[in-house]
């Protein structure tokens, strides 16, 4: 039997990657990108499993489903209730949370979770790499500005300016970017 899986994910590219990883398992995957009216739309679809990024604030809306008590509602559990501790730990570290309808076979849930966890791990790695790259870029810009200030103020060349920044950083046990940042701030205050 095919499972109905809903992925709550506003980023289209990421959503497509999740679909790609889950479709080979032979399930129907629907993506909800909009968080407006989320609870109502989920009631309409009545999925077996809902996957959501742990950093998505709208996750709290899904908690309501775990409490649904009407006669037509299907009991839903936050999946930590039903699966192995190990799988749960992995999911939380990867940053994905899941809501699973009661009574699904544990191995079928585990297969879906394995695929989802692998995908979200990749997202987390990409996010970290992106952050690192962005920070490196900002630091480079800062250092360039600090070099410019030093070259002008002391009449030295670019290499000497960088050497001076580096020596100061080493003497003070700080990062070159931090020294550059302090210099840029100070220059801004003095000008």
């Amino acid at each position: 039997m095919k499972l109905q899986i809903v992925v709550v994910e506003p980023d289209e590219a990421r959503a497509r990657l999740v679909i790609d990883s889950l479709s080979p398992l032979g399930h129907d995957v629907t993506v909800l990108g909009e968080v407006t009216g989320l609870a109502r739309r989920l009631r309409d679809i009545a999925p077996d499993i809902v996957l959501i990024d742990m950093t998505n604030p709208s996750r709290d809306t899904l908690e309501e489903m775990a409490l649904a008590s009407g006669p037509l509602d299907r009991p839903v559990a936050f999946f930590v209730d039903r699966t192995s501790r190990d799988l749960t730990q992995q999911a939380i570290e990867a940053g994905v949370s899941a809501y699973v309808v009661d009574g699904l076979q544990p191995d079928r849930v585990a297969a879906v979770m394995d695929a989802a966890i692998a995908r979200f791990r990749m997202f987390r790695r990409m996010r970290t790499e992106l952050d690192t790259t962005r920070r490196a870029l900002e630091e480079r810009k800062l250092i360039d500005r600090a070099k410019g200030i030093l070259m002008k103020a002391r009449g030295i060349g670019e290499d000497d300016a960088y050497a001076l920044l580096r020596k100061t950083a080493m003497d003070q046990g700080r990062k070159v970017a931090d020294v550059a940042g302090a210099l840029v701030t100070a220059a801004g205050l003095l000008s």
Binding site: P57, R59, L62, V80, I92, S97
Partner: peptide, 15 residues
């Protein structure tokens, strides 16, 4: 934490 459910899980799972 981005949500109460995430914070609850962070606490329950030792993060």
């Amino acid at each position: 934490a981005p949500s109460w459910s995430s914070l609850r899980d962070m606490l329950l799972w030792g993060q």
